[in-house]
Design a protein around this nucleic acid. Structure first.
Length: 424
DNA sequence: TCTGGGGTCCTAGGACCC
DNA sequence: TCTGGGGTCCTAGGACCC
């Protein structure tokens, strides 16, 4: 088996994962909530996306729609928060900056997870415990650390670490008895669908998965799953990515706080998402080559007629011109809008982003006249400096009755002067 | 009444070309 | 009855992740 492979015996990858991250962020500023059930809701106060251990013990599943668990929460005194991404983003930066002190090679994988390359460290488990203690002392966020030869093994180890008192766990090559106890669906890269198909052919735990012929694995899940299998046997297939690669698409979308039927309101929403998405692209110094707009009704409402559609266009020249994106987004929206439906969600996706400096200009046409560009830059600066309420496009609307619900959000303690904690 | 948002990669199949 | 072969490019859809 691959994990006996001597070539990789020196490798140690650590996965540091914040425990119940959003809940932990809220608890930093509300210490009285420690050891009490707490959940954080998704946008629109839709479903539970983070749960404290106490909330998990009450049987609140990940992703549970809030309206289904509301009673349960009230009966059990669960504290419920809307999500506060300004706070979580800032806490995340603090955690990763502490982690970075301990490893020369660090990959920020998500808002609450980082991979660290600890290869060459004599006692990685001891170091992990030190890292853990430092992070919680300096940021208030508890983390768990899993160690293994590959990212996939580190992920698995992390899952086991969450159950340990020390919060750290290492999977070694020879620990078949451990792999045997791990359901195949717990492996990183094996989701719901693949897990069913693997179990159907008897590959129900991580050890069986590791030992299966690679041809079988490939026929079930293609090259991606075959890579996962190699990773489980200790052969690295996923590299550390220290420099985040620039993204290829970006999306801005929201569900509405209530059903929306009129084209006028949808246009307002689309204009806002177009502005938001374009700003993301501008802030990264990129240009977008294409644009997609989608709309859909509420797929959970079986009593209503459903409609979903999307349309895409390619710009003849990559652009970051906010007005142009908004205008085109509205054109696309009108072409897919059908009267008589109760819409739940719309969104704008910007496609094939490219760095601004590599821009290829059109031969015979010039879209962005200097005056136009100066205007957009000035508009953006005013809006950034004095807030969106001071400079926005007419298309974005004033009232925004369709906007999302966010009724239980805590203050932005760390990123907004007005929200600083008051001691007296 | 109420069910998130934002990404990635891979593959199959169609259009088109010579 | 018989109905080229081989290549590229693009897109939609399916799978996964947090």
């Amino acid at each position: 088996m691959g994990c006996r492979d001597q070539r990789y015996s020196f490798l140690v990858i650590a996965l540091a994962d914040c425990n119940n991250f959003y809940v932990s962020c809220e608890r930093v500023f509300r210490p009285a909530l420690r050891n009490r059930p707490v959940i954080v809701l998704s946008n629109n106060d839709g479903c539970a996306v983070a749960r404290s251990n106490e909330a998990k013990a009450l049987g609140i599943p990940m992703g549970a729609p809030y309206h289904q668990i509301k009673k349960l929460c009230e009966w059990n005194g669960v504290t419920v928060f809307s999500s506060n991404y300004e706070l979580y983003g800032d806490m995340s930066r603090r955690v990763t900056s502490v982690l970075a002190r301990f490893a020369p090679e660090l990959e920020i994988y998500s808002i609450d997870e980082s991979f660290l390359n600890l290869s060459g460290v004599n006692t990685p488990l001891l170091l992990s415990q030190r890292i853990r203690k430092t992070v919680v002392r300096w940021t208030g966020i508890p983390i768990s650390i899993g160690l293994g030869k590959t990212k996939t093994l580190a992920k698995l180890a992390n899952r086991l670490a969450k159950k340990k008192k020390t919060g750290c766990f290492e999977i070694r090559a020879e620990q078949d008895d451990i792999l045997k106890q791990i359901p195949v669906g717990d492996i990183w890269g094996v989701g719901h669908r693949l897990s069913i198909r693997l179990q159907r052919v008897g590959l129900n735990n991580a050890l069986r998965f590791a030992q299966a012929p690679s041809s079988v694995i490939r026929s079930i899940g293609g090259v991606t799953l075959e890579r996962t299998q190699r990773e489980i046997t200790g052969i690295p297939c996923l590299e550390m990515e220290q420099v985040p690669q620039s993204r290829k698409n970006t999306c801005s979308s929201r569900s509405f706080g209530r059903p929306v039927e009129t084209l006028a309101e949808l246009e307002e929403a689309v204009a806002n998402y177009a502005v938001k998405a374009t700003r993301k692209v501008r802030s990264e110094g990129s240009l977008t080559s294409g644009l997609q707009v989608f709309i859909n009704t509420n797929r959970f409402r079986e009593d209503q007629e459903q409609y979903a559609n999307s349309r895409t266009l390619a710009f003849d020249e990559p652009t970051d011109d906010i007005i142009r994106v908004v205008q085109n987004a509205k054109v696309l929206l009108r072409s897919i809008y059908r009267k008589g439906y109760a819409y739940k969600k719309t969104g704008v996706i910007l496609l094939d982003l490219i760095p601004k400096r590599s821009q290829q200009t059109l031969l015979f046409e010039e879209h962005g006249s200097p005056r136009r560009r100066e205007f957009i830059d000035a508009f953006e600066e005013v809006s950034a400096r004095y807030g969106q309420s001071c400079a926005f496009l007419g298309a974005q609307g004033v009232k925004q009755k369709w906007s999302m619900r966010r009724e239980m959000r805590t203050p932005r303690y760390t990123t907004c002067w007005d929200d600083l904690v008051k001691v007296f």
